[in-house]
Amino acid sequence: MNAKAEVESSGMDTVKLLLAVILLAGGIVLFYFLEEYSSLLRVLGLLVITGIAVAVALQSVAGRRVWDFAKASRGEVRKVVWPSRQETIQTTLIVFGMVLLVGIVLWVFDMILMAIVQSVTG
């Protein structure tokens, strides 16, 4: 698969990605350069330029790989079995209880060590 990807990529992919970065940087510069215009218009313009930059980036092999990865990740998230509200509350209570228990044990251990140190040092 790596050999195939290396064969598919070309100098044009680099140009496309560079163009996308230049578009995005130019959009950000224009956003701050055109302060006298409405914030709404500047944000809409930045969103349009960002959309164009993403469209250009998706035309490259690297862009398609990122898009495929995002689609596969979304599919994996859909396969996750999320805990119910009751399971979440129970797990949270167990974690709080264990934190409290460990805190008390460490506090007692600290008090014992402090008493030992005080008895040794006078």
Results as ranks from 00 to 15, higher is better:
residue 62 A to N: 13
residue 113 L to P: 05
residue 67 W to N: 12
residue 37 Y to E: 01
residue 68 D to F: 06
residue 97 G to F: 08
residue 60 S to W: 06
residue 64 R to G: 13
residue 47 L to H: 02
residue 89 I to C: 08
residue 100 L to E: 06
residue 22 I to R: 00
residue 49 I to T: 14
residue 54 V to P: 09
residue 10 S to K: 05
residue 92 T to I: 12
residue 117 V to N: 04
residue 103 G to F: 09
residue 55 A to I: 07
residue 69 F to C: 15
residue 64 R to V: 14
residue 91 T to Q: 09
residue 70 A to T: 14
residue 7 V to G: 05
residue 92 T to K: 04
residue 56 V to G: 04
residue 23 L to I: 01
residue 82 W to N: 11
residue 114 M to L: 06
residue 103 G to Q: 09
residue 42 R to L: 00
residue 57 A to C: 06
residue 52 I to M: 05
residue 71 K to E: 14
residue 37 Y to R: 09
residue 25 A to Y: 01
residue 97 G to S: 04
residue 18 L to G: 14
residue 55 A to N: 13
residue 63 G to V: 07
residue 44 L to H: 02
residue 81 V to L: 09
residue 106 L to H: 09
residue 97 G to W: 07
residue 31 F to E: 01
residue 70 A to Q: 12
residue 57 A to V: 02
residue 2 N to Q: 10
residue 59 Q to G: 06
residue 69 F to P: 15
residue 2 N to K: 09
residue 40 L to S: 06
residue 18 L to R: 03
residue 42 R to I: 00
residue 51 G to E: 02
residue 49 I to E: 02
residue 55 A to T: 14
residue 116 I to D: 04
residue 81 V to N: 13
residue 56 V to S: 06
residue 59 Q to Y: 13
residue 74 R to S: 12
residue 55 A to V: 05
residue 41 L to E: 01
residue 7 V to I: 06
residue 108 V to L: 07
residue 62 A to T: 15
residue 85 R to Q: 14
residue 120 V to Y: 11
residue 42 R to F: 01
residue 107 W to Q: 07
residue 45 G to W: 00
residue 39 S to L: 07
residue 15 V to M: 05
residue 82 W to K: 14
residue 62 A to W: 01
residue 39 S to D: 08
residue 2 N to L: 09
residue 26 G to Q: 00
residue 81 V to R: 13
residue 25 A to Q: 01
residue 2 N to V: 09
residue 87 E to F: 04
residue 102 V to I: 15
residue 45 G to F: 00
residue 102 V to P: 10
residue 24 L to D: 03
residue 101 L to T: 13
residue 67 W to A: 11
residue 34 L to C: 04
residue 58 L to V: 12
residue 119 S to I: 12
residue 51 G to F: 02
residue 60 S to A: 15
residue 19 L to M: 05
residue 10 S to A: 06
residue 51 G to I: 03
residue 40 L to A: 11
residue 1 M to H: 05
residue 92 T to C: 11
residue 2 N to S: 10
residue 35 E to C: 02
residue 15 V to P: 03
residue 105 V to R: 03
residue 57 A to R: 09
residue 19 L to C: 05
residue 53 A to W: 00
residue 23 L to Q: 00
residue 63 G to P: 10
residue 11 G to C: 04
residue 58 L to A: 10
